[in-house]
Amino acid sequence: MSLDKDQVRHIAMLARLKLTDEEYAISVQKLSKIVDFVDQLSAADTTGVVPMAHPLDAAQRLRPDVVTESNERDRYQENAASVSAGLYLVPKVLE
């Protein structure tokens, strides 16, 4: 099963990726190849097989409910392109 341009557009939108027209054309072709390739999986007999989400059979460790972090806002915001009064800025969000 291959992908068409509309599907690729939809995926790109879900993933918030802007592609040029040329990139779209190449993506349709290459993603289709990848999807065809992974389609091999359908041949495997997985009846009754428990899906494996982790390579190790372990349980989640729990952290004590203690605050050890302090305010490092200025340092952390050095990597941000746009901040004002301690806030990260984005184009106006309409509600």
Partner: peptide, 21 residues
């Protein structure tokens, strides 16, 4: 869309799209 579209290279975008799919 532009920050991600311009900031990521082709292979990364391809993998993100494969994964999204």
């Amino acid at each position: 869309c532009r920050s991600r579209g311009e900031g990521f290279g082709d292979e990364v975008k391809r993998r993100i799209m494969t994964g999204t799919y």
